[in-house]
Design a binder for these strands. Sequence first.
DNA 1: ATAAACTTTCAATAATTATTGAAAGTTTAA
DNA 2: TTAAACTTTCAATAATTATTGAAAGTTTAT
Lengths: 167, 167
Amino acid sequence: MNYEEAKIKFISTWGSLGTLWGINKAMAQIQALLFISTKPLSMEEIMEELQISRGNTSMNLRQLMDWGIVTKELIPGERKEYFTTEKDVQELARIVAKERSRREIQPVIKVLNEVSSIEDDGTEKTKELIKQTKALHDLTETADAMINKLVNQQQNWITKSLLKLFT
Amino acid sequence: MNYEEAKIKFISTWGSLGTLWGINKAMAQIQALLFISTKPLSMEEIMEELQISRGNTSMNLRQLMDWGIVTKELIPGERKEYFTTEKDVQELARIVAKERSRREIQPVIKVLNEVSSIEDDGTEKTKELIKQTKALHDLTETADAMINKLVNQQQNWITKSLLKLFT
DNA sequence: ATAAACTTTCAATAATTATTGAAAGTTTAA
DNA sequence: TTAAACTTTCAATAATTATTGAAAGTTTAT
């Protein structure tokens, strides 16, 4: 496998993994391209490399910036805008975990809390609904808290010890 | 909010959360319905409650069984098949984490490993590709391992201590 | 062996989501 | 202030994914 093949394989794999971290294919591919680029890229260059339209590129870059994963780079003397992505994988993971928590997990926790707090009318089905949604609520909240904590700490002594424990 | 309202809210919320754990809406809704049901349900009952077609119900039940989340229950004297879901949230999380790892994460780890193992031709762009995909590979592998380990342990002393540490 | 009761399959269709491309908008240089 | 260089927006279209429903398949009872 040479450089070009490897690059294409990486971008397309990372693109299809997008769903796993809650973003769409084009977004993930743009991020992947920037992630292995040795310099900031212009919209033109991104369009060219990924064979996608100007509109698509513009919208997805905007979303990546909303997520805080990509930033504009102003190159002196250049009219065009250039883009870079966060290059540190730990930081990337931190941002993604935080955003997904805020966008998707927190709203669900809220609903689970509401549902599990309905008045117990004494019927079996109500008891079951309350019991099960409460269990889901607690699980979701705990998982969310753990992921955020883990991902937030820098590679400090706790994380290091945990890695040893769990590997 | 009364029982019916709460039930509908729970099912639809859990349904739209489906994407987060990698399954589609109908699948997630069927699972949600079974999760709060006090008894096994027939295909007929599921179709009726969720207002979905027989074909859709059949296919999604099949998928849930493939995942190992739902099982057929044979009720003596009954011709119909009845379905139940795993009711323990910890066990549910274990199954989901394991399946997603197998279906999605492992294949990505494999590709990242291949890509990061290409021959270093000495150019800057190849060096960057290798460096960055290697970092992603290590991150993904570590995260996958941790999630599986965490979710696999029963609520034993380690998990309990961790929860205290991280909450 | 037949038929009723039930489940699965799958081509057709609908719903959703992503993408395009060109017009409108913005910024900068002269 | 004008025009060139560039970016954004968004209605139209394409691609993808989910859903239907009816025919085919299976199982069980008689």
